[in-house]
């Protein structure tokens, strides 16, 4: 399978979400895999697709934080000191199951990240639903209204864990014959979410190692899915953004949709 990847510059939340959605639409059309690794130009909260906007308002009563809504599910992420990635694949190639997720794609990316952390003597593991006091283990509890607002306070099978702390989580969105997976690696604690420990607080300084991290993910996807990636070495977005896509993510109707 053909693929393109880009280590992108820091962009606004609206641009980041618009590009990821454009990648999904484009992959649904042309069947080409796309991987983008990026950051954010200012601290931004990304809400999960089904999260209530009022939860964000409770989290940030001053409403002085930038906020966007993702197309993918899961909890909110404070993008302050993190690396974010998005990947789009044809759903059949991703091994997507009926209606939705591709556990294989989660395992591939998270496995690659665990391998990369291991190269730097960081012992990371996949969360496997062992019960721990005070930790929410499944998004199913969201139904009962007891779900943490922040993604990194939740636990799902397959999350990347270091010393009991979640440092990486991912979420997916199906569209037609394509699948989008978003994920975030927490580099250090943000003053906006002090309950979360990043890799720095856990004894590893990842800054300056983005290229190696990216290559590890590329290699993992190549090995597991046979994707022959070409590097997109350009400052423009990896795909053109349709105007309606940009307008959607700019719209308050989208951000505060529920």
């Amino acid at each position: 399978m053909e693929g393109i990847y880009q280590i992108d510059s820091a962009r606004s939340g609206i641009d980041n979400m618009s590009i990821d959605q454009a990648m999904l639409l484009q992959t649904a059309e042309d069947g080409i895999a796309r991987l983008r690794i990026y950051s954010w130009d200012k601290p931004t909260v990304s809400l999960g697709y089904f999260q209530k906007f009022e939860e964000f308002q409770s989290f940030n009563p001053a409403e002085d934080l930038s906020v966007v809504r993702r197309a993918t599910g899961g909890g909110a992420i404070v993008h302050h000191y993190d690396w974010t990635y998005s990947i789009t694949l044809p759903a059949t190639e991703a091994g997507a199951i009926a209606h939705g997720a591709s556990p294989r794609l989660y395992d591939c990316v998270h496995g690659a990240v665990i391998g990369w952390l291991g190269q730097h003597q960081v012992a990371a593991e996949l969360w496997s639903n062992q019960p721990l006091p005070g930790i929410q283990q499944s998004s199913a509890v969201c139904n009962a209204g007891g779900c943490s607002f922040l993604c990194f306070e939740r636990r799902h099978a397959g999350d990347v864990i270091v010393d009991g702390f979640k440092v990486m989580g991912s979420a997916q969105r199906r569209h037609g014959h394509a699948l989008l997976q978003h994920g975030s690696l927490l580099l250090r604690t943000s003053p906006l979410a002090t309950s979360l420990l990043g890799l720095s607080e856990l004894g590893f300084q990842p800054e300056g190692l983005l290229a190696g991290f990216s290559l590890q993910v590329v290699d993992g996807l190549r090995a597991d899915f046979g994707i022959q990636f070409q590097c997109y070495d350009c400052s423009d977005p990896i795909v053109p953004i349709p105007e309606e896509t940009q307008l959607k993510f700019e719209s308050k109707l989208w951000t505060a949709r529920i």
Partner: peptide
């Protein structure tokens, strides 16, 4: 997420969405 009463649905077109463990699907 399901449509409202009175909404028009079309065979083969999306009428709602479901979120499973971290995947949103039409």
């Amino acid at each position: 997420e399901l449509p409202k009463i009175g909404a028009q649905v079309v065979q083969g077109q999306q009428f709602g969405e479901v979120e499973s463990v971290k995947a949103v699907s039409p």
